[in-house]
Design a protein around this nucleic acid. Structure first.
Lengths: 113, 113
DNA sequence: TTTACGGTTCCAAAATTTTCGAACCGTCAC
DNA sequence: GTGACGGTTCGAAAATTTTGGAACCGTAAA
């Protein structure tokens, strides 16, 4: 197993509500979360649509999201995939993410694209 | 009309999600919001259960909550009543407050203690 | 009116967060 | 191996938030 450079992720049960709310309270982070709601993205693709941000800054925001348990960051070849921990979040704080994303959870989950 | 010393409150339609999330992301503020969910409190009663906090500090937290539109602060004689803007919040961000407070809205509101 | 009360505002210090360049680390291509 | 890539970590500066004392403002009681 050639170098497992996995980053630490809190497990679903130990997520802290205020940490999650804080992570989501930043406009640029929330914007990213909205995009992640549509599917995983590699880190480079997490750049805000339009402007470029220094790598270290982007990495910092990803860290806040990851440590709060909002996002999962897994290595894949020489890149990394960032994905929303929707299920875990919903297990721990039912309805929260849906409310933040503006969906109450009542609408067609697998709607026609 | 003897001195209307009303504080500014954003109206329901103009509430900003990240501001609300930020206001709720502080543990002491969130704790207060939970208590307010059970009914209005006068400012003095907003002191954290157990410890005393300087008046100016408490006032600051109330200001963050008020400016985010989470709370309403209305003068009443020589004191002020602080109340949760549950309805306004729910109109603007359906389900959010319920999710934060840990109730999806489905359970018995007046459950047996 | 004078004084006590309940609270907000003002201001500055302390703490935390944000930003970003530079150094570093694994992985893949040459 | 050597080098380019994709990203994280480190460290320090800039910006924002938190804290708390002092001054101030209306209201109600003396």
């Amino acid at each position: 197993m050639p170098g497992a450079r996995d980053l630490p992720h809190p497990d679903a049960a130990s997520l802290v509500l205020t940490d999650v709310l804080f992570a989501l309270s930043d406009p640029s982070r929330l914007a990213l979360v909205r995009r992640l709601a549509q599917g995983p993205l590699e880190v480079a693709a997490c750049q805000p649509t339009g402007g470029e941000v220094p790598k270290s800054t982007l990495s910092h925001h990803l860290k806040i999201l990851r440590e709060a348990g909002v996002v999962r960051n897994v290595p894949e070849g020489r890149q990394r995939y960032v994905s929303l921990r929707w299920q875990d979040l919903d297990d721990r704080f039912p309805g929260l993410l849906g409310a933040v994303l503006g969906t109450t959870g009542e609408e067609d989950p697998g709607g026609s694209v």
